[in-house]
Amino acid sequence: MPNVDLNLLTALDALLSERSVTGAARRLGLSVSAMSRTLTRLRAVTGDRLLLQAGRTLVLTPHAEQLSQRIPALAREAQAVLGRAEHRFDVATLTQRFTLRAGEGFIELLGAALVERIHHAAPGVQLRFAPKPDWDAQPLREGAIDLEIGIVRTSAPEVRTRLLFRDRYVGVCRSGHPLLEEGDISVARWAACGHVMTSRTGEAENPIDAALDTPDAKRKVLMVVPSYTSAMQLARHSDMLAVVPHSCLGNTFLPAFATTNGLQAFELPVPIPAFNISAIWHPRLDHDPAHRWFRGEVLALCMAGYPR
């Protein structure tokens, strides 16, 4: 469309509304002579006189009368489409679905607080949590996932990350477990108990067992499950021990999640490094105003739930 100048649309809107070259010029901040030249161009483009002299005023031609019903909406739409993205963004009227990939623990402990926070600001937004079978970055690249929450374990060099909170591992067992009756928990006593191990991929390697560098301290793993919440439920209803992130014990929104579920936490007898929980996204969404707002809401929620 080499001959289409959208500036003419704005000028035509002003001329049809004001029905005056002087008034249209004043409205658009132009000189009267520039507005007069623009009217000449509009007459050439449309093939119609548009405005005709009638005494001391101008009147619309029949074609201009028809255009006057359509042009204001077209002009507003063109300005909205071609305006800067951040100027068009209104969170209160946002209608969008954000797809997240997070562990079951995040969903159970922060999901309700997140949807309440989002819905309060943007009633038209829907959250969708997708399964998290692995740490593959391809769904982020393809746009199937808008935001991932967890440990950064992808080798994709282009992904963006933002620290949400620091976490560490603790042990949990049912209330009244014999392990807690004899004072300090030694490595030998802890390892000798039956354990339920959490492994999303089913592999037996994890930071806890890597810290047990002697054969006599090897854990007696009786069951492997894919999520921390499953491990906590099994520990609650048996004598098995589980190792979970400290964040699974509760937060500001659910301050006693573990204890109200019949679990008691204890410090592990082996040193396990702390780790970061981050928000992960693809750089193509860096400057998207809706995604930027959503990332900020997730960060604010995590900072409130797990103060640093």
Rank of each mutant, 00 (worst) to 15 (best):
K132F: 05
G29W: 11
D209L: 04
R49W: 03
W190H: 12
R153S: 14
L58I: 00
M240P: 00
H282C: 05
G111D: 10
R200Y: 06
A44H: 11
F266P: 00
V125C: 04
L127E: 03
F275N: 03
S238W: 12
G124M: 13
Y306K: 07
G105P: 03
R174Q: 04
A258L: 06
G55I: 01
T95H: 15
R168S: 15
G305F: 10
L51C: 01
L100Q: 05
L212P: 05
A14R: 02
A78I: 03
S33Y: 12
A64M: 07
P157C: 04
N7I: 02
L50V: 10
L164K: 08
I149D: 03
N276R: 14
H119Q: 13
A192H: 11
V225S: 10
L58S: 13
A156P: 01
A34M: 05
G103Q: 06
A192T: 02
P139M: 07
G103F: 08
H63L: 11
R162E: 15
P226M: 10
V225G: 07
R70F: 06
A265Q: 14
P139L: 03
P131H: 10
A304S: 14
G262R: 08
T40Y: 15
P157E: 07
A121K: 09
N3M: 09
I71D: 08
L100S: 06
L222P: 00
L52N: 08
R295P: 04
L147Q: 06
G171W: 07
T38L: 14
P131S: 08
T154D: 13
V152S: 09
R76N: 14
D216P: 00
Q79T: 12
L42G: 04
E203F: 06
T46N: 06
I277L: 07
R200M: 14
L212D: 07
F257G: 00
L51H: 05
A274Q: 14
T46E: 12
T10E: 10
N261M: 09
T57H: 13
S36C: 06
L39T: 05
T229F: 11
L8M: 11
A75W: 00
A231N: 11
T46P: 00
A144S: 15
D90F: 12
A304W: 01
A130D: 13
G250L: 04
R295F: 04
E65I: 09
P215W: 08
R70C: 05
S247R: 07
N206Y: 07
V196A: 02
L234S: 02
D184A: 15
W293I: 02
A235H: 10
A113H: 11
L6G: 01
K218R: 15
W293D: 07
H177N: 05
S17H: 15
L268P: 01
S155F: 08
R200Q: 12
Y169L: 15
I277F: 03
A85E: 12
V59I: 15
L39Y: 10
M232C: 11
F89K: 02
R200T: 09
A258W: 07
D136S: 13
A11C: 11
D216S: 11
D288C: 10
S238C: 06
C302P: 00
G194V: 01
R219M: 12
A78G: 03
W135A: 13
